[in-house]
């Protein structure tokens, strides 16, 4: 099967520090794929390489079979690559619906209009409202993001990315910092994500990873340690040593 996202021998180093060491990685269409590894394993670096926030030292990135290695981040978004951030990266002083509508309008190519009022973009607004409703945020549409509780802000993170209708969605610790009482909402939302989106998730919460992912890739010191089904990973001695052992041992 063709991968929707693939990296080939991806390398990145800052001076002597190697943060990505020949990472080869494939994401199948509709995949539920988790990327795990101890702190400093290079997970967020890999995400930043894929989205184009940082340039690789060598290697290749392919999106739907086409190389995107030299492309700007915005061009990769146009090709169907969406992401969320580990630390909330929101338009804090804007209304929740504006946060989502900005993304939808960019995707629809109407975000640059200078004359017609934004409020006349009914298609954008209706889609934004519908999206917020599916995430249980309909009530909060007009609230300012900065005034929302943290758990709901994490949902807005996901909502913005979904507004792009991505083919590939990269989730960087979507439940990070969310109190366990509220994290079930995040889990429900993740379970309900459209099946045609291929999802790569970085997560520290092993319960969430094993519940959500069908495949798991383990990173260690910038390199792929192993990859397999959750059961294989759970049984892997090397993984236990570098990662699970440290966590649960």
């Amino acid at each position: 099967m063709n991968a929707v996202l693939e990296t080939r021998a991806l390398c990145k180093s800052f001076g002597a520090l190697v943060v990505a060491d020949s990472v080869g990685f494939r994401l199948a269409p509709g995949a539920r794929h988790a990327l795990i590894g101890p702190n400093g394993a290079g997970k967020t670096t890999l995400l930043n390489l894929i989205t184009g926030r940082i340039e690789p030292s060598s290697g290749e990135i392919l999106l739907a079979g086409e190389p995107v290695t030299g492309l700007r981040p915005a061009a990769r978004v146009k090709r169907g690559l969406g992401r969320t951030f580990q630390i909330n990266t929101l338009f804090r002083q804007l209304a929740v619906i504006d946060n989502v509508a900005l993304a939808i309008a960019e995707r629809d190519g109407v975000a640059g209009g200078m004359f017609r009022p934004a409020s006349r973009q009914r298609a954008v607004i209706d889609e934004a409202l519908a999206l917020l409703a599916t995430l249980g945020l309909a009530e909060d549409a007009r609230a300012r993001v900065a005034d929302l509780p943290y758990g709901k802000q994490r949902l807005v993170e996901i909502a913005i990315a979904l507004g792009l209708k991505p083919k590939v969605l990269l989730l960087d610790e979507p439940a990070a910092g969310v109190p366990s009482l509220e994290s079930h909402r995040i889990l429900e939302v993740l379970d309900d994500l459209p099946r045609d989106i291929a999802i790569l998730i970085i997560e520290h919460d092993m319960d969430l990873v094993f519940r959500f992912a069908q495949r798991i890739t383990v990173l260690s010191q910038g390199a792929v340690l192993t990859e397999g089904t959750p059961a294989e990973i759970a049984a892997d001695a090397a993984v236990r040593q570098v990662y699970l052992g440290e966590r649960h041992g």
């Binding site: 929101l90 900005l102 975000a111």
Partner: peptide, 14 residues
């Protein structure tokens, strides 16, 4: 009040 204006506030915010 246009989409362009909204995107400017987006740039300002983040």
């Amino acid at each position: 009040y246009s989409p362009f204006g909204a995107s400017l506030t987006g740039i300002r915010e983040n």
